[in-house]
């Protein structure tokens, strides 16, 4: 089994602060972290390897500081980490990123042997598009399942995955190679271990590929290969909450009270009418 897990190095959005004084976002000194939704993906990859044998390779397309994130993955027990980094990759949208990642996976197949599974976190905290796993699957022309909560290797070529949607649970059996998007918070990630970290350091398990290695057409990568245009970004100011305490007789009374309070608000009234009762205003 050879499993690839994709990692994104993202600014810790919790640390970005709005300065009401100057009306700008303060990004100075905001440290980056491994996208929290990637941690269950790493955990799933490691569990599959631990049960079926094989190796897990973490990949990330990012500027050099992202080695800290790959070191965390190595500390968790990933066998090899590849940072794909090049100036020409800068400014990439999801299309250009997925293009580079899919070629990274192809190169891994050429250098290390065939890949069975590619696992991603469902989305990232800094952009939340959830595009990457689906796009990588399309470039590779491999099947893709998202919102995965569990997976099990049945035999060498078949995995059974469980995905949980809002109202029901689905189970799939699919042939590898395949791409999985792992649901947020589905698995508790393991901690970094000292021996994994030392081993990664001494066995030089962190390698760096640039476009000299991947040899991609520079028109398809980075800013040039990115058709997405960000038209405008708007900061949503936090809406102050109005707290009220109401002691209802029962659930029905509580619901009635909440709805009556919402109907008092002009904006909410319109929203309620449209969504709940399908009334166009």
């Amino acid at each position: 089994m050879r499993i690839i897990v994709g990692i994104k190095w993202v600014p810790n959005t919790q640390a970005v602060r709005f300065d009401p004084e100057t009306g700008t976002l303060i990004r100075r000194g905001v440290p980056s972290i491994v996208n929290p939704h990637d941690l269950p993906a790493i955990e799933l990859a490691l569990r599959l390897r631990d049960s079926a044998g094989g190796e897990v390779i973490a990949i990330s397309m990012a500027p050099p500081p992202a080695v800290k994130g790959l070191e965390l993955a190595l500390g968790m027990g990933v066998d090899l980490a590849i940072l794909v980094t090049d100036r020409v990759y800068a400014g990439a949208d999801t299309l250009a990123t997925s293009y580079v990642l899919s070629h990274t996976i192809r190169k891994i197949e050429r250098e290390y042997g065939s890949v069975d599974l590619v696992i991603f976190g469902q989305e990232t905290i800094d952009s939340s598009t959830a595009h990457i796993p689906a796009q990588v699957a399309s470039w590779l022309e491999w099947p893709y399942i998202y919102y995965v909560r569990e997976a099990r290797i049945l035999d060498n070529k078949v995995v059974r995955v469980v995905r949980e949607l809002e109202e029901y649970i689905e189970e799939y059996e699919l042939e590898t190679p395949a791409v999985l998007g792992v649901a947020m918070r589905s698995l508790k990630p393991r901690h970094v271990s000292l021996s994994n970290k030392i081993r990664a350091r001494f066995e030089k398990k962190l390698i760096i590929w640039s476009n000299n290695d991947l040899k991609l057409d520079t028109r398809c990568v980075g800013l040039k290969g990115s058709p997405t245009i960000v038209a405008k970004t708007i900061d949503m100011p936090e809406v102050p909450r109005r707290k009220e305490v109401y002691k209802p007789r029962d659930a029905r009374d509580a619901a009635r009270w909440i709805i009556s309070r919402m109907l008092e608000d002009e904006k909410l009234r319109e929203l309620l009418q449209r969504t709940l009762w399908g009334v166009k205003s």
Partner: peptide, 23 residues
């Protein structure tokens, strides 16, 4: 930029917003 508004006592919650955790 008004200086006066910097010169008001911040609540602890506001001070905590200045820090970064990876929880």
């Amino acid at each position: 930029m008004s200086q006066q508004s910097r010169l008001k006592q911040l609540k602890l919650e506001e001070l905590l917003q200045r820090d970064v955790w990876d929880v």
